[in-house]
C-alpha cells in the first residue's frame, strides 16, 4: 500500500539522532511487546508479512507519532481483535471474558522460545528457472497495490541492473493476504542515484533493493 511507512526519499523528518549506549529496551513494556508479538505470531498463525502489513495500516497520524514498540503493540492488539482471538471488551477490562479456541500451534511455552529467537528460513524450492540473469537491465513495474508490497514507491518504474540472484523466497505480497507463500525469485537490483533522484543526485550514490520477480520487467 502507498502508506506513510514507505519513507524512502521523503523530506522533512530532520536529523538522525542516535542515543549513545542505547539499552535494548527503554521500558519494560517494550520487551513484553516484542515477546508477545513473536509468541502470537508463531503460535497464532500471524505470519511476518501479515504482521508488517498490520503496522502499515495504522492510521497515518498514529504511525508517524507512535514509538516503534507502540506501533507493534497497537498492531498486535488490532490484529488479534480482527481475528477474533481477543475481544475489544477484554482489552478494556484487562481480563479474558470469553472462551476462545486455542492457538493454531497451541500455548506458547518454553519449548517454543528457541524457534523465535532464531531467524527462520523463507527460502523455498524453485518451480521455474529465474527470469533474469545477473547483469540484465530491468525496470521495476508501476504497481500500486492497496495491500502489502515490498516495492517502495521511490523505486517504481525505474531502470536498474540485476546484481545478484538470491534464491526463491516466500512472496510477501500474497503471504500478507493469507493467499499462500507463492515463492518467487528474489533479486538484488541496483540503481544509480541519478536513476532514482534525477540530475541533482549524489553522483557517487548507488542504491539497491531486494526485488521479487513479479516486481520486474525486462527493459
Amino acid at each position: 500500500m502507498n502508506g506513510v511507512h514507505d519513507m524512502g526519499g521523503i523530506d522533512g523528518f530532520g536529523k538522525v539522532e542516535a542515543e549513545p549506549n542505547e539499552p535494548t529496551f527503554h521500558e519494560t513494556w517494550e520487551g513484553r511487546v516484542i515477546a508477545m508479538v513473536r509468541a502470537i505470531g508463531t503460535n497464532g498463525g500471524i505470519n511476518l508479512d501479515m504482521q508488517r502489513f498490520s503496522r502499515e495500516i495504522l492510521p497515518p497520524q498514529v504511525y508517524l507519532t507512535s514509538s516503534y514498540y507502540q506501533k507493534w503493540f497497537l498492531a498486535l492488539e488490532q490484529s488479534m481483535i480482527a481475528r477474533g482471538m481477543i475481544g475489544a471488551d477484554e482489552v478494556e477490562a484487562g481480563h479474558s471474558l470469553h472462551e476462545n479456541p486455542p492457538l493454531k500451534r497451541g500455548t506458547f511455552t518454553m519449548k517454543d522460545v528457541e524457534r523465535v529467537t532464531t531467524r527462520g528460513s523463507f527460502r523455498r524450492e524453485p518451480r521455474l528457472a529465474p527470469a533474469f540473469a545477473v547483469g540484465k537491465r530491468v525496470r521495476t513495474k508501476n504497481i500500486n497495490p492497496v495491500t502489502h508490497t515490498r516495492l517502495p514507491r521511490y523505486a517504481r518504474g525505474r531502470s536498474g541492473t540485476i546484481e545478484r540472484i538470491n534464491g526463491c523466497h516466500v512472496f510477501p505480497d500474497t503471504n500478507a493476504r493469507e493467499q499462500g507463500e507463492n515463492p518467487q525469485w528474489l533479486y538484488t537490483v541496483v540503481f544509480s542515484g541519478h536513476d532514482l533522484w534525477g540530475d541533482d543526485a549524489d553522483p557517487t550514490l548507488q542504491v539497491s533493493i531486494e526485488a521479487f520477480e513479479p516486481y520486474l520487467e525486462p527493459v
Binding site: W29, R32, M36, I40, L76, G94, P102, T107
Partner: peptide, 26 residues
Amino acid sequence: ELRVRALETVLTEKGYVVPAALDAIV
C-alpha cells in the same frame, strides 16, 4: 504500560502464552 500489561494478562488467561516463555525471549 497499563495496556501492555492488560494484554499480557488476557493472553495468559486465555492460555495463549506462558509468561516465563516471554521472559526467556526478553
